[in-house]
Computed example of a mutant assay.
Amino acid sequence: MSRTAHQDLHSERGALRGEHPGRSRNPVIKVADLGWLEFEKPDLARAEVFALDFGFSVAARTPDALWLRGTFAGPPCMVIRRGRTSRFIGPVFRAAEPADLDRLARATGTDVREADVPGGGKVVDLLDPSGFPVRVAHCAERLPELPGQRPLLLNFGTDHRRTNTTQRPPREPARIQRLGHVVLETRVFARALGWYLDTLGMIVSDFLYLDGRRDRGPTMAFIRCDLGGVPADHHTLAMHLGPGSGYVHSAYQVTDLDAIAAGGEYLGERGYRRSWGIGRHIQGSQLFDYWRDPDRFMLEHFADGDLFSCDVEPGWAPMSTSGLAQWGPPATRDFLGATPSPAKLREVLHALRGDNELDPARLLGLLKAVNS
Rank of each mutant, 00 (worst) to 15 (best):
A259D: 12
M239R: 00
A221W: 07
M298Q: 04
L299H: 09
L345N: 13
R214W: 00
I260S: 15
G305A: 10
G246E: 00
Q283Y: 09
M220I: 01
G244V: 03
C225Y: 00
A261D: 06
T339D: 11
M239I: 07
P330R: 15
A262L: 13
I260V: 15
Y252K: 06
A251P: 02
G323H: 09
W291G: 13
P243R: 05
G246L: 06
S341M: 12
F288K: 02
R270Q: 04
A351M: 06
D334I: 15
A338C: 12
D311P: 14
G315I: 08
P243A: 13
A238D: 02
R274D: 00
S245K: 12
C310E: 14
H350I: 09
P314H: 05
M319F: 15
D295S: 07
P314V: 07
Y247N: 09
D311Q: 12
L324K: 12
Y266Q: 09
S320C: 10
H301P: 04
R353T: 11
D289C: 03
M220W: 01
V230G: 02
R296C: 10
R213F: 00
R273H: 04
L345D: 13
S320W: 02
G264A: 05
P218Y: 01
T236R: 02
H249Q: 07
D334Q: 14
T339K: 13
L267A: 03
A325I: 09
L257Q: 06
V248Y: 02
P294K: 06
P218R: 08
G277A: 05
G271S: 09
D311T: 12
R353S: 14
G228S: 05
E347K: 14
D334K: 11
D293H: 04
V248P: 00
T219Q: 04
D304E: 10
E347S: 11
D295H: 08
M239D: 01
D304A: 09
R333G: 15
G229C: 11
G277R: 03
I282W: 00
A251E: 02
F302I: 00
Q286G: 04
S322L: 14
G328S: 12
T219L: 06
G315K: 10
L352M: 09
V312L: 11
F288M: 00
W291N: 08
L336Y: 12
L237N: 00
V348N: 08
V312R: 12
T321L: 04
E300G: 05
D256H: 12
D226W: 06
L352E: 05
H235Q: 02
Y247W: 04
D289N: 05
R292G: 10
G284F: 01
C310G: 10
R346C: 11
L345I: 13
D306W: 04
F335D: 14
W276T: 00
A331V: 12
G263E: 09
I278N: 08
W276N: 02
R274Q: 03
G315V: 06
M319Y: 14
G337C: 08
G284M: 02
G246K: 02
E265K: 11
G315L: 07
H235S: 02
Q283V: 08
A303F: 08
L324D: 07
A232M: 07
I223P: 03
G279E: 01
I260P: 14
L237S: 00
Q283D: 10
D306E: 10
E347D: 12
E269K: 06
A303Y: 05
A251H: 00
H301K: 09
A261Q: 11
S285E: 07
F297R: 03
L307T: 11
F302C: 03
R270E: 00
K344T: 15
